[in-house]
Structure formats: C-alpha cells, structure tokens
C-alpha cells in the first residue's frame, strides 16, 4: 500500500465523523449568533482582512505549487502574516517570538533542508492534478464541517481582555509553568544532539 494513502484514510474517516457531528448541529440550531465583539476599530478590521488574505493566500500557494523553493516563499508570507496577526491580537511578545523562531529559525532551517536535498533549486515535485483535486475537495469538506461547528459553538466571550505583559509571562514561566519550561530545555537539548548526530558527516 502506498504510504500517502495513510494520511488520506485518516482525512476521510475524520471528515465522515465530522459530517455526522455537523449534521446534528445543523438540525438543532441555526440561529446561534457568531461571537462578535462589537468594539473593534476600523483599522483592526482592515488589518485583519488583509492579513487573513495574506495568510490563506500564501498557504494555498504552498498547496498548489510544485516547486519547493516557492513553498518556502509561501511559508515566509504565511508565518509573517501569523506573526502580524499576533500583534493584532495584542500578543506582542508572542508576535516577536513568532517572527524570531518561525521566520528567522524554522524557515531558514527549511530553506537549508531544501538546499541540502536538491540537485538544483528548480527541481519540481508535481502532484498529479487528479490527486491534488481530490485531496483538496476532502479538505474543503472538512473545512466546511469544522467551520460550521466552530461558528455555531457557544463560546463564552468576555470581551477583549487586557493585553498580557511580558512581566506576567516571565512570572508565569517560572511559577505555574516551571515544569514545561524546564522540560522544554530538555527537549531542545535532546533534539539538538539527535539532529547534530544525524546531519554530521561520519569520519571514516
């Protein structure tokens, strides 16, 4: 069996399950209001839509293009858009971290990966049209159900909360989240050893 089909099967099964869930949701309620907080200024609205188009557009580009280099460029815009979105959500520290780690770290890693593994930068991995269309259709179906459920779910919205200061975050890291904080150090250490070992040239 082709390895690709594994993820496929999961996609199908999960969307079937979701479809059933979505149907019941549809039957019971149709008029649940979306949780919209009225107080959002015009600039916030404009920025949101611009960023949304940027993120989704570049993500779609990643899905459609066959060239790995273009995928990396799409990833740049997608990550960057998400970082700006974090600023919009008043998560300033997280926005900066997103820029540094994702755009400055992971993206560079991906580009290195591409350069180390292709004989020429223009190498293309074209997916057959048919396969692209069917997987896309299943994903669309999944999104319709997921979106439906998310749209109608009764979220408790307490209105915009105050932005979290870096001071609070730092205190949280060293009290409530001390264990994950320490654990993150161990994860990074072990991963560093593993990745360095795998990528290292063996001495003969």
């Amino acid at each position: 069996m082709n390895f690709k089909y594994y993820i496929w099967v999961i996609l199908l099964v999960s969307s079937a399950v979701l479809l059933c869930g979505g149907q019941t949701a549809l039957a019971q309620e149709s008029a649940a209001a979306a949780a919209i907080v009225p107080a959002s200024g015009p600039l916030e609205v404009i920025f949101f839509w611009v960023l949304a188009i940027m993120i989704i557009g570049s993500a779609l580009w990643i899905a459609l293009t066959g060239s790995v280099v273009r995928m990396a460029v799409g990833l740049f815009f997608s990550f960057g858009g998400v970082a700006l979105l974090f600023f919009l959500l008043q998560a300033y520290f997280l926005g900066v971290v997103q820029l540094i780690v994702y755009v400055g770290g992971i993206l560079v890693l991906v580009v290195f990966g591409i350069m180390l593994t292709s004989s020429s930068p223009h190498v293309r991995y074209q997916v057959p049209r048919m396969e692209l269309a069917t997987t896309g259709l299943v994903s669309l179906l999944l999104f319709m159900v997921l979106g439906h459920v998310l749209y109608h779910a009764p979220w408790s919205t307490t209105g915009p909360q105050l932005p979290v200061s870096m001071n609070e975050l730092g205190r949280g890291l060293l009290t409530d989240y001390l264990v994950p904080f320490e654990l993150a150090g161990v994860v990074l250490l072990v991963v560093m050893v593993g990745a360095a070992y795998l990528a290292r040239q063996e001495k003969r």
């Binding site: 869930g21 019941t24 949701a25 019971q28």
Partner: peptide, 14 residues
C-alpha cells in the same frame, strides 16, 4: 447542551 458544542467536543477529543 447545544449540539454544536457536543460536536466541537467530540472533534477536539478525537
């Protein structure tokens, strides 16, 4: 409980 919340929970748990 609204059905959409149940669907959401089922989805998240899955």
């Amino acid at each position: 409980v609204p059905a959409s919340k149940l669907a959401l929970l089922g989805l998240a748990l899955l």
